[in-house]
Design a binder for these strands. Structure first.
Lengths: 341, 341
DNA sequence: TTAACAATTGACAGCGCTGTCATTTTTTTA
DNA sequence: TAAAAAAATGACAGCGCTGTCAATTGTTAA
């Protein structure tokens, strides 16, 4: 049957307390003893019992991933990344989906954290972008790590893993500029999401860097949906009115881009010959359109694993690892963008 | 601070063992006592500590959802449905993604079940369709519930929640027949998946019921991907060769249908005027195409919750709930199917 | 009415581990 | 070389609960 700490202690010829010290990486164990114990651990393939640990100890070995589901692909990637880190470090992961728009969300999560004795939390947008909510959690005795859009953490509430959407958006806009485009439209995502704001900033920055005049009529409000891509592109490419027709569209995510692509087809505009369209996120969508989308890729699994490791090192009170990591989504050039003619 | 069983016992004026009996719904507690305890539980908002339960008891209060990720939307829906049931019954859910193609998968999962002392497992396709794998798990002391495609369970290994793809496929094919279509093509999903086989059977059954001759050239092999939809539709609609051009295409899922839709556009075939295309699954894809897809919807969250409840009642050894449920995906008529002319 | 039985309840050990504190061993200092 | 200080180790309680079994109470039959 499964080996317990007693078996290891017996095999190593030490007390269970010493075994406990070794598996918890505590100081005050002689090197020789440590090795003896480690050997026994390996031989017996011993793995500490999480329930016992959680019950006995002051600290907990559970962390939770709280999410509001904006995008199933994103969530799954995040979840699997976090899970992978937790598994490696012998932590348990609780999954807690919730609704960011729900008024009682703070209370709900606080209760959950208290009841399950959770040591740490990982938050992704939009939850990570709700300061009040984050504040309430930090005020409990729970570590928090947020994954957010931006280049630097917006506050000191918790460590963050930043995704530099701004820089990526600048790069992707620059890509369009390099192809000779000047009239580049921007179809925004939800205005409340930091990522939309950041991507917009990057877009503006790229224009400015190339001395391209900003044209407000090329900015369309959207909401990260396929539909907003369709209507946005229709509006932009309509021949009525006196607006400038863009030669390229920067869509705030791939869904919008897919919608724009579709609208273009309806209007008999060929992509990328007559119009370049780029997306953002490198979601499966971007490979399931024709032509395939030029987009920006972010390694979500890796970001998640990174965030989880950051959280776990906090929880274990190892050196206050203040290494705030930053990721910059990477331009992926596919077939939906081409030279402007 | 959090109330423990001791607090409840004190408040109710009974021993902790009696409290334990009440919260575990055991017999041999007088009605009056039960009510007294329940009152104290409610007043103190007592919730049993999972770690303590798992540690002390012979039985475990953890179940796991093992999945191989074929489709993020599906997984998320399932996960949330299962989670909801577990929460209600005070069970903990462990999430375990894995790779069905991995050779050591059985060993991996068996180890995990043993180590985490898991009481029950929920399996979805493709894992639920791997008899050897399921057998190995059932042979452990762990309850299993499978979600599968079909009308009746294929074996006695475990209770199943069946999704009757066959009947749904028949209905959706019948829908096309009712619209006057006779040359109805079928683009298959992965041939290894039961769902593909079932949907194919339903398709054949509908044809037969209406005395429509089966035309093998209208069957295309696919793999549940957008690309296979594109190439399948191209092949079907090509004017070269001497094959019959279908007036309708039954796609084995929405992704295939989206691909077919796209191919049709490329070939200047207007949907649904010249060609009807139907999907299956009612995934977000189906609403993000133009025209929107006629498809079949399955209530994944509900199916999952059902499966979880079935599992939990097994685990708790409540009446051997042999109620095997069956779901039939429901036809959703949208804009991609129309009268044949 | 009382013995015999069944139903109900409780005392207590122990699940596997960590925290506290006492004990032993080693190292340093005088 | 011995005393003092520091490091390493262990004994033991107890986390919150369940399982076992004994004690108590209630119920039925004689």
């Amino acid at each position: 049957m499964k080996a317990t700490i007693n078996d290891v202690a017996k095999q190593a010829g030490v007390s269970i307390k010493t075994v406990s010290r070794v598996i918890n990486n505590e100081t005050s164990v002689r090197q020789l003893t440590r090795e003896k114990v480690q050997l026994a651990v390996d031989e017996l393939n011993y793995q500490p019992n999480l329930s016992a640990r959680n019950l006995a100890g002051a600290k907990s070995f559970s962390v939770a991933y709280i999410y509001d589901n904006p995008n199933a692909y994103y969530i799954i990637d995040m979840q699997e990344g976090i899970l992978s880190a937790c598994k490696k470090q012998g932590f348990e992961l609780l999954i807690h989906p919730c609704d960011a728009k729900n008024e009682n969300i703070t209370e709900e999560v606080v209760n959950m954290v208290k009841h399950a004795r959770i040591a740490g939390l990982i938050l992704t947008p939009p939850l990570s972008e709700m300061p009040e909510f984050v504040k309430s959690l930090v005020d409990l005795d729970v570590k928090v790590v947020r994954i957010m859009s931006g280049d630097v953490a917006p506050d000191e509430l918790s460590p963050c893993v930043m995704v530099n959407d701004r820089e990526a958006a600048q790069t992707i806009t620059q890509h369009l500029i390099d192809l000779g485009h000047k009239d580049i439209a921007f179809i925004a995502g939800d205005a409340k999401h930091m990522s939309t704001i950041e991507r917009y900033k990057g877009y503006r920055k790229a224009l400015k860097a190339s001395n391209i005049d900003f044209n407000k009529s090329l900015i369309i409000e959207g909401d990260y949906s396929f539909d907003s891509g369709v209507s946005g592109a229709k509006q932009l490419m309509s021949t009525e009115g006196n607006n400038t027709r863009p030669t390229a569209i920067f869509s705030c995510n791939d869904e919008i881009a897919a919608g724009a692509l579709f609208a273009a087809r309806l209007m008999n505009i060929s992509i990328p010959e007559q119009l370049s369209i780029v997306g953002f996120e490198n979601s499966p969508f971007s490979r399931q359109t024709w032509p395939k989308l030029t987009t920006a890729d972010q390694p979500n699994g890796q970001i998640a694993e990174d965030a989880a490791n950051l959280l776990l090192s906090q929880v274990r009170k190892q050196k206050n690892q203040v290494t705030i990591s930053q990721y910059v989504p990477k331009l992926i050039v596919r077939d939906s963008s081409a030279q402007c003619n």
